[in-house]
């Protein structure tokens, strides 16, 4: 909520004055006001506000048209419609135009504040996820390996050789994370490393590759589960859950990391190396 720059679009100077007062009271900065559509589009382009309050009736157009034009240029800005008229038809049109919330006039300060908080909560939450997922996964991996196989455990940042792809070492596992925002964990190692690990953990030299694959699946599941619990502990709104692991086995497989925000690591242990990639992606906002 802090540092949000707001523009008010309304054909009434009185409404602008009321909204300005409400917005400034909750600590937001009103950076521009516009009384008509053309002025609103021009100012939005120039000032790039984070939030726009949009009246539906404007002298030279309407709020839907105006929002559509603004969002063509400013993909990151969020628009809340504030209008005296509100019915299902116009709400539907507003949604289709990319408007995020619809409030009816007269707006009360608490209702407006709540709508803005809800609208930007996802952004702040995503920032918290971005700031913390790396540590959460590192801690989760480190704790598991230290407890289960012992010896030296090191995690090094790793730069993918080819942009966005990883040639598999033999056995990979992918686990999805699903909540307010989404993500994915990939762990990749050679069959030998997986086998070494399962032999050590179970203290049984007769373990087979089949069993090593089962181990890797459970390993990834625990790592992702524990890391998500750590993150959910930071903020319950994450609501992160893990999907069942998919294990991928083969000699000639390339894994595409994709263009999401991700970090790669090499996990070094006495029993061999493993590659780990964790990626996160912003979830969709729902209508308020």
């Amino acid at each position: 909520m802090k540092n949000l720059r707001v523009m008010i679009v309304d054909d009434s100077t009185f409404s602008i004055a009321v909204l300005r007062k409400m917005l400034e009271k909750v600590g937001l900065e009103v950076v521009a006001t516009a009384l008509n559509m053309n002025d609103a589009i021009e100012k939005a382009k120039e000032i790039k506000p984070d939030l726009i309050t949009m009246d539906m009736t404007l002298p030279d157009g309407n709020g839907i048209e105006c929002s559509r034009e603004i969002l063509k240029q400013l993909k990151e800005s969020k628009i809340i419609a504030i209008s005296s008229m509100m019915d299902e038809e116009i709400i539907e049109k507003a949604k289709n135009a990319g408007i995020k919330a619809y409030l009816q006039k007269p707006v009360d300060a608490d209702g407006l504040k709540a709508a803005i908080e809800k609208l930007f909560a996802g952004e702040e939450l995503y920032q918290i996820l971005q700031d913390n997922y790396e540590e959460a996964f590192k801690e989760s991996v480190f704790t598991f390996l230290k407890n289960e196989i012992g010896g030296e455990v090191e995690l090094e940042n790793y730069q993918l050789k080819y942009k966005g792809v990883r040639k598999s070492s033999g056995v990979s596992v992918a686990v999805g994370m699903i909540g307010r925002h989404r993500g994915r964990l990939i762990i990749d190692m050679s069959g030998d490393t997986a086998l070494n690990m399962v032999k050590k953990i179970l203290q049984d030299e007769s373990q087979t590759l089949e069993e090593a694959i089962q181990f890797l699946s459970e390993f990834a599941n625990v790592i992702a589960g524990n890391a998500c619990s750590l993150l959910n502990g930071l903020n319950r709104s994450f609501g992160l859950r893990v999907s069942p692991p998919t294990v991928i086995i083969g000699e000639d497989i390339t894994i595409s990391i994709g263009d999401m925000d991700s970090k790669s690591f090499m996990i070094k242990t006495d029993l061999g190396e493993s590659f780990m990639n964790i990626g996160v992606q912003k979830g969709d906002e729902s209508w308020i």
Partner: peptide, 20 residues
């Protein structure tokens, strides 16, 4: 139900184990 981000991979003879 909710979905995770997709994981894309390519190659020959890819063996997938879904544990079901």
């Amino acid at each position: 139900v909710d979905i995770s981000v997709p994981t894309l991979l390519f190659g020959e003879n890819i063996e997938l184990n879904l544990n079901k």
